[in-house]
Design a protein around this nucleic acid. Sequence first.
DNA 1: ATCAAATTGTACTAAGTTAGTCCTGTATAG
DNA 2: CTATACAGGACTAACTTAGTACAATTTGAT
Lengths: 158, 158
Amino acid sequence: MVRLGKLTDYGLVLMTCIARSQGAPLRTARDLARESKLPISTVSKLLKELLQSGLLISHRGTKGGYVLAREPKDISVLEMIAAIEGPMALTECSTDITGLCNLESYCPIKSNQQIINRAVRSVLEKVTLSDLMHPLHLTTIEDARGKVLPVIASGRVQ
Amino acid sequence: MVRLGKLTDYGLVLMTCIARSQGAPLRTARDLARESKLPISTVSKLLKELLQSGLLISHRGTKGGYVLAREPKDISVLEMIAAIEGPMALTECSTDITGLCNLESYCPIKSNQQIINRAVRSVLEKVTLSDLMHPLHLTTIEDARGKVLPVIASGRVQ
DNA sequence: ATCAAATTGTACTAAGTTAGTCCTGTATAG
DNA sequence: CTATACAGGACTAACTTAGTACAATTTGAT
């Protein structure tokens, strides 16, 4: 169903939690687990992955924890997804790594998949953590070919 | 990695094959299996699913086979994906079916996921089977917020 | 009428991926 | 020195996907 894994979903929740408490001291894994109602082992694992992708900065020891590495507006949804799921590709054909697709060179729609993939990536690149924090600021979004999609002011999609 | 399943990929290939032979008589599963170099059992299964979603029309018996139910330009990539993978949602939160997400009502980014999902859906809705057949006709595509993505004339993405 | 070609429907198995847990090690503030 | 919190890896169970197989049904042609 072209869907994000649950863990990725949780990752977005955690990033939003951390972003919301900017200015506050470091957020610990336990702390975030309590706030997000997720098991601490899972939270811990996700924070590690977000750290390794450079989206978070950590401090060890007592009074340790995590902060955002950049401002929310400079962290894209695409980056967060990639941090947890690995480099995103809609199909293996679109990963630029040759030899993965068993239809190889005579695959008739390889180039099309790259087009689709690029469009999807681009959408996710443009939506940032800041947008996730402040849904009201994102009132419209233009889809491929410039058609405007109305997005309801409450943050809900009609 | 937010990717399509292999079967979906095959489904796009099959639809492209059928679209390319419009005007010709019905295409059989065996026929398409040979052309696409896929196992016939898999092809048969996919054609059934595409049929049930109303994207194909079938005729049984000798001289039977499949044709497109509509013109290529009126069949979106989103429909083809949905036919094989079920209704698309980036996360379970975005399916409009309540009770699936264990964070339920207090999930802080539910509405945002719906925004992301809608943008992605919209991109896939705008790309049609016709675009897959004639990649040269799709030279640029606009991403969310109207930024133009260049797409190389050869059909390859730079 | 009968046969052969083709779709229809269902059920099943194996493989791969994802979710989630646990344990040991390392750094640091007090 | 010690309690706290991150770091890294290994591991298991559950779920999903890919792929196969078979019997039933429909239909055109001889």
